[in-house]
């Protein structure tokens, strides 16, 4: 289960305001690309344009085939999406929520098949959620809920998974847990695109970083190439110190003497 994902000149305008300008991107099968950039750079918009949640000019190709010519169901079998703030029905149980991921694999009126139930059970076990299967989503902690949302995307069994800020709501331990899970999926050959706020984590896990600002790609490449003091000063307006340690690129805000540093790193 693997597929490439490309975009050609992807542009999004909302009420005449360009949110994304002619963005081209190519993600290899089994590659993890993380989109970084300051607030309002268009990261979420790019992800939504890729998955088709927002109308965009340009084209998106999966394995070289344009998604425009695909049916909704077909596209949903290729790409799954974890939104930054998912809509979670109030009293739905974890099992039923994750089961929704099986939607594109059966007729919407048809009952779930044993294989759907099997997939859901496997995913729940993989994400260590099986003991919460009968709990209502409302009653979960933030980390558990985030894992359940990822579980739904995994149950969709798509070669490409797009995740919008998958770690933002999580504490350090849960962040690591989710990222390690994505890492494992990548090793299985899935193609992963995430947006990330935490630059150090982004650089540590993703194969490649894409720096987006003002709706355009400003830099692209490995963590060492993209995470430079200049790039971050230019596009984040942040004063940071970059250090390299055991192959990881650490982004550390400099504490200025006269004013406090922007805490948006």
């Amino acid at each position: 289960m693997s597929a490439t994902l490309e975009s050609h000149d992807l542009s999004v305008r909302v009420d005449g305001t360009p949110l994304l300008r002619s963005t081209s991107l190519a993600v290899d099968a089994g590659e993890w690309v993380s989109i970084i950039g300051p607030n309002g750079a268009g990261k979420s918009t790019l992800l939504r344009a890729l998955v088709g949640a927002v109308d965009a000019d340009g084209d998106v190709l999966v394995d070289g085939e344009s998604v425009r010519s695909m049916k909704r169901m077909e596209r949903a079998r290729l790409m799954s999406w974890v939104p930054q703030i998912p809509t979670i029905p109030s009293t739905i149980r974890v099992f039923d929520y994750v089961l929704l991921g099986r939607t594109p694999h059966r007729h919407p009126l048809a009952a779930e098949r044993p294989e759907d139930v099997g997939v859901v059970k496997n995913v729940l076990r993989d994400l260590d959620l099986h003991h919460l299967s009968d709990r209502e989503m409302d009653s979960l902690s933030g980390g558990e809920r985030q894992r359940a949302v990822v579980a739904r995307a995994l149950a969709q069994s798509t070669p490409i998974i797009l995740l919008d800020e998958p770690t933002t709501a999580l504490d350090l331990g849960h962040q690591q847990e989710v990222l390690l899970l994505l890492d494992r999926l990548r090793r299985d050959g899935r193609t992963i695109v995430t947006t990330m706020h935490d630059l150090t984590l982004a650089g540590q896990f993703a194969d490649r970083l894409v720096l987006l600002a003002e709706g355009e790609v400003k830099a692209e490449g490995g963590a060492i190439e993209v995470l430079t003091e200049k790039n971050i000063a230019d596009h984040y307006r942040a004063d940071v110190r970059i250090t390299h340690e055991n192959g990881a690129v650490l982004v550390v805000p400099r504490i200025r003497t006269q004013e406090s540093s922007p805490d948006d790193h």
Binding site: V51, G52, A53, R72, M73, R75, A76, R77, M79, S80, W81, P83, P86, T87, I88, P89, I92, D96, L100, G101, T103, P104, P108, L109, A110, A111, Q156
Partner: peptide, 27 residues
């Protein structure tokens, strides 16, 4: 009585339901 599952899919919102393959406006 057959459409309960469809309504369950719609419960995650137009956008997400659509990304799950449901033709939301038509449904």
């Amino acid at each position: 009585s057959l459409t309960g599952r469809t309504l369950d899919i719609m419960a995650v919102g137009d956008e997400e339901a659509s990304m799950l393959g449901l033709a939301v406006p038509q449904v």
